[in-house]
């Protein structure tokens, strides 16, 4: 069926339907204007400084920590599905197969047209982007930034280097490295919930920050002290620690690097089953 079917009678009907949807949505949004209920978020704001100076990190990783874990899993799944679609790990029945598995060829690069200056500039820029990504992830609980951003910055460095140098990419994230780092990221994030689960019974309870006094002081200092900071606020001086939030952020960053890097890798360099890959997969 070609798109031309949407012209004529069907198109008119579809446009009318879309108009109805638009009017309905707009009329409801108009009612919402100025009447948004702040609800529970007000309480979050009151409590947030007890954990870390960066409110967003506190919200995303402390209150919504488990939600963010599943969101992290979405990115991971996205990468695995893309890799599956491009050709890796296609399973078949032992007794019956319809077609050969799909494989994807690498892209063809034409890097000759890039100027020499760009090529000279490429490597330092990629390295600086990598270190910027690392800076963003380490400062997640105190200032803007976090795992997602770090992952995106690092993989953009990878993409940048791939554009400048083609197959001679100086940032050589291998297949196994990416799969391994993604798995370490998601697995690590998941397992960071374990200390809280074992001690307080709540999965992903922030044992380092321990604002509700549920765990022993020893555990509190093991997870909390490495990240303890002095906060000078209007209300006074606080010694606050984000607890496990920086660690979660690093795991998150690893996962995003693994996932997005894998997608880039599959599209840029193709994916085929090599014999060495079949001996021992993964890292």
């Amino acid at each position: 069926m070609d798109p031309s079917e949407l012209r004529g009678k069907r198109g008119v009907i579809a446009v009318i339907a879309l108009l109805i949807i638009g009017v309905g949505l707009m009329s409801s949004l108009e009612r919402l204007a100025g009447n948004v209920s702040p609800g529970i978020s007000r309480i979050y704001n009151i409590l947030a400084y007890l954990v870390a100076p960066n409110n967003i990190a506190t919200w995303v990783y402390d209150w919504r920590g488990f939600d963010t874990l599943i969101e992290t899993a979405v990115i991971y799944v996205g990468a695995v599905v893309s890799a599956l679609a491009i050709g890796r790990g296609v399973v078949q029945m032992k007794h019956y197969s319809e077609e050969a598995p799909v494989t994807s060829p690498p892209l063809e690069y034409r890097t000759e047209s890039l100027t020499v200056i760009l090529k000279l500039f490429g490597l330092p820029a990629a390295i600086l982007l990598l270190s910027y990504g690392i800076m963003v992830v380490t400062a997640s609980s105190t200032s803007g930034g976090g795992g997602f951003q770090c992952g995106v910055i690092m993989t953009s460095a990878y993409l940048l280097a791939a554009i400048f140098y083609g197959k001679e990419n100086p940032i050589r994230f291998g297949k196994r490295f990416l799969i391994g780092i993604g798995a370490v990221g998601l697995g690590g994030y998941t397992l960071l919930g374990l200390p809280g689960f074992l001690t307080s019974g709540y999965w992903q309870y922030n044992v380092g920050a321990d604002i509700w006094n549920l765990v022993s002081p020893t555990l509190h200092s093991i997870f909390g002290d490495p990240f303890r900071l002095t906060l000078y606020l209007q209300e006074g001086v606080f010694y606050s620690t984000p607890g496990i939030i920086p660690l979660i952020n690093i795991a998150e960053a690893f996962n995003v690097i693994g996932a997005i890097g894998l997608i880039y890798f599959a599209f840029l360099y193709g994916w085929s089953e090599q014999p060495e890959d079949q001996e021992k997969g993964g890292k």
Partner: peptide
Amino acid sequence: MPGDITPFIISIVLGVLFGTQLSG
């Protein structure tokens, strides 16, 4: 506070990890 130093150490460790993936 230790919170000032730990990020610096972590950044070096992560840097070494990703530095080993560079070629050329």
